[in-house]
């Protein structure tokens, strides 16, 4: 029943009861009321107010409770919803509130995904410019210095050799930064090579051993989807090495039906998957970019990150 009608009915019922009481009860009010009559009237009025108050309170209390609960929903930790009461005015309010939180979280996650996509595009552009323009220019300088060194008088040779080493360092830096921005191997050689390179780097910088299984004959993925798979694998490996203290990690890329499945399983100490950390949230948002499903299961003996994407 709508809140308006509920209040109206309660007030109406109390007033009706009072009117009936006036009609039925053997009381009358003289032209100049006496004290006893005023006392009876006053008592009747008091009874009406108390009855009304009790009825309204029991009817509105669920609303107050819902309002208090609303404050406990934290946008930083999405996924929490209020439990709607079985009936009463609180139910509609909770249902409406939950639907709004759904829309908000959806919107937020969409805009995060868009932001991620824009960020990747920008990184791609910068990495390409570093490689194609600055890298080439520095290569020209490097080769030119080598030439100059061979023809220069002896007293300049050391100076030129030092300059050449600086140029080489610069070239190495440009390459390193470009690689951090965007794994060129993914664009040039594809996902399987990029994952091979990722596990190779991982093995080099971590004490954990890593096994990689890439099933043959995987269906081709769009370059955006490949990037999502790559970034999720990267994040999962980082977590395994940095937080889980894993000693063995297995990364696999297989086909299930018409979907491609990435699984990264470690034997680390695990974590509480309900506590949505930034890494986990990032993976979820990336999965959404590729219309994929991300599931993370974790126990004290290991964590498995599984990403399913449509081919």
């Amino acid at each position: 029943m709508r809140l308006y009608w509920r209040v109206l009915v309660i007030n109406g019922a109390v007033l009706t009861a009072a009117t009936l009481a006036l009609v039925v009860a053997p009381v009358s009010v003289s032209r100049h009321p006496v004290v006893s009559e005023a006392a009876v009237l006053g008592f009747g009025l008091f009874l009406m107010v108390v009855t009304n108050a009790l009825l309204l309170r029991s009817s509105l209390a669920p609303l107050d409770r819902v309002v208090r609960e609303m404050a406990s929903v934290d946008p930083q930790r999405p996924g929490r919803r209020l439990k709607p009461p079985d009936s009463g005015p609180g139910r509609d309010l909770v249902l409406g509130f939950n639907a709004m939180v759904d829309r908000l979280e959806e919107e937020r996650s969409m805009s995060n995904a868009k932001q991620l996509a824009a960020q990747e595009a920008e990184r791609h552009r910068i990495a390409r410019e570093l490689h194609d323009d600055i890298g080439q220019q520095l290569t020209v300088v490097l080769l030119g210095l080598k030439q100059a060194e061979q023809r220069a008088p002896a007293e300049l040779a050391d100076e030129l050799a030092a300059l050449r080493e600086s140029t080489r360092d610069g070239l190495d830096d440009v390459r390193r930064v470009a690689r951090q921005l965007r794994p060129g191997v993914l664009d040039d050689l594809g996902l399987a090579s990029a994952l091979a390179s990722l596990t190779h780097d991982f093995a080099e910088h971590s004490s954990a051993s890593v096994r990689r299984v890439v099933a043959p004959g995987l269906p081709p993925l769009s370059s955006d989807t490949e990037l999502v798979v790559y970034r999720v694998a990267q994040e999962a490996l980082t977590n395994a090495a940095r937080h889980a203290g894993a000693s063995a990690v297995e990364l696999s890329l297989t086909k299930v039906g018409d979907r491609v499945v990435l699984e990264v399983a470690d034997d680390g100490r695990g974590f509480d998957v309900r506590r949505d950390g930034a890494g986990l949230r990032g993976m979820r948002e990336r999965a959404r970019l590729a219309a994929g499903d991300l599931t993370v299961t974790s126990s004290p003996v290991g964590t498995t990150v599984r990403l399913e994407v449509p081919a």
């Binding site: 190495d172 390459r175 690689r179 191997v185 040039d188 090579s193 091979a196 190779h200």
Partner: peptide, 11 residues
């Protein structure tokens, strides 16, 4: 090549 990555070498 600009790329310092063994995958490019093997490829």
């Amino acid at each position: 090549s600009m790329h310092d990555n063994e995958q490019y070498f093997f490829e």
